[in-house]
Design a binder for these strands. Structure first.
Lengths: 117, 117
DNA sequence: TTGGGTACTAACAAATAAGTAAGTACGTAT
DNA sequence: ATACGTACTTACTTATTTGTTAGTACCCAA
């Protein structure tokens, strides 16, 4: 779905290869990923439906799509229980956990920047 | 230009108010901002033309637009010298400098994640 | 045989971000 | 009078992300 050779994606690729920050942002950026990561940091394992309940306003398409990206990027594990109705849980990988400090710093920074505003 | 009451922007606003990480990301996210910030962290003050030279592939429209956003968000100061041809320098504000630790962590994380790949 | 619960999928539409190309302004130098 | 250097601006196009709506699959239980 992404155009490999648009200037847009060439620029992105180039920056990701030359700048760790860009590379990091490309994994955790976007509207929902950090929230998914945050819930998983605090609650260990969560079922798909539990995540959906916590992420107010997210659509199923977005949730699935972001979970899939996180999984492909090695930040999240998907655990399938072979039963009906289906049960699927998500948890952070070790790499995912290693984001904790960064996320906590960003949270502090964002909160003290705008105190209740 | 932004639609105040699209679901998209409502979701963003809501998250930014309830999550420091989202708020932080909304200030430093996107394709170019972190690179601008990085150069200013390392080189103190830079002229517009110096920034443009460092940011390979950026268009003038993007550079100006990102600088303007950074300025409006209080991360960057714009210093105008009243002379012709024009001379304008950019530097980080105190708030901008306070991102140093976060950016350094993200850089490390991004680099060790994918060692030369 | 109809409906329920859970985790998805697919086709489409809207919104936003990023990029392209061509200009503007204004003193100064030629 | 023309051209130059610097920091922008404008109008427009393309790319990418996000959201909407309506499904699917599966076994079980009534």
């Amino acid at each position: 779905m992404r155009k490999e050779n648009s200037t847009n994606s060439i620029n992105e690729k180039h920056l990701n290869q030359n700048c760790g920050i860009s590379a990091t942002l490309s994994l955790i950026g976007g509207r929902w990923k950090i929230n998914i990561l945050s819930y998983l940091l605090n609650e260990d394992r969560l079922r798909y439906s539990a995540l959906r309940a916590r992420l107010e306003g997210i659509s199923e398409r977005m949730l699935i799509s972001k979970l899939k990206e996180l999984e492909q990027d090695g930040l999240v594990n998907r655990i399938v229980y072979p039963q009906v109705p289906p049960k699927v849980e998500y948890e952070l990988t070790e790499l995912g956990h290693s984001l904790r400090e960064i996320l906590e710093l960003m949270d502090e920074w964002g909160e003290q920047k705008e105190p209740s505003h």
